[in-house]
């Protein structure tokens, strides 16, 4: 339900004039698609770990940078982009 809640936030904030981008794990990609969210980055990470493994600041930064790039690359709502890379702790 969290992913739907954030979907409502994304739609309302975007409609108010502030661009948004969301980081969704692949298990909830369908929520981003059903709700037609403005910009979505999909990470192939487990539920509950959207930014990546514990103690991996480089992976977290990669994800943030990819999400930020959507503000430059997306030219329409409903943009969904898959983040490369697997969940690789350690």
């Amino acid at each position: 339900m969290c992913h739907v809640s954030v979907g409502h936030v994304a739609r309302a904030v975007e409609e108010s004039g502030i661009p948004t981008a969301g980081v969704y794990v692949s298990a909830f990609r369908f929520v981003a698609e059903e709700m037609n969210l403005p910009r979505t980055l999909i990470t192939h990470h487990p539920f509950g770990r959207p930014m990546g493994p514990v103690g991996q600041p480089d992976r977290h930064l990669e994800v943030v940078m990819a999400a930020l790039s959507l503000f430059e690359s997306a030219d329409r709502g409903g943009t969904v982009v898959e983040m490369p890379g697997r969940f690789a702790p350690g």
């Binding site: 969290c2 309302a12 108010s16 502030i18 661009p19 948004t20 969301g22 980081v23 909830f28 929520v31």
Partner: peptide
């Protein structure tokens, strides 16, 4: 709450918003 949250974000002069659902 959502209308208030939207207003709050505008009040904070945010240019773009990163959202992380969990």
């Amino acid at each position: 709450v959502l209308p208030r949250w939207v207003e709050m974000l505008h009040g904070a002069a945010i240019d773009v918003l990163l959202l992380v659902p969990v």
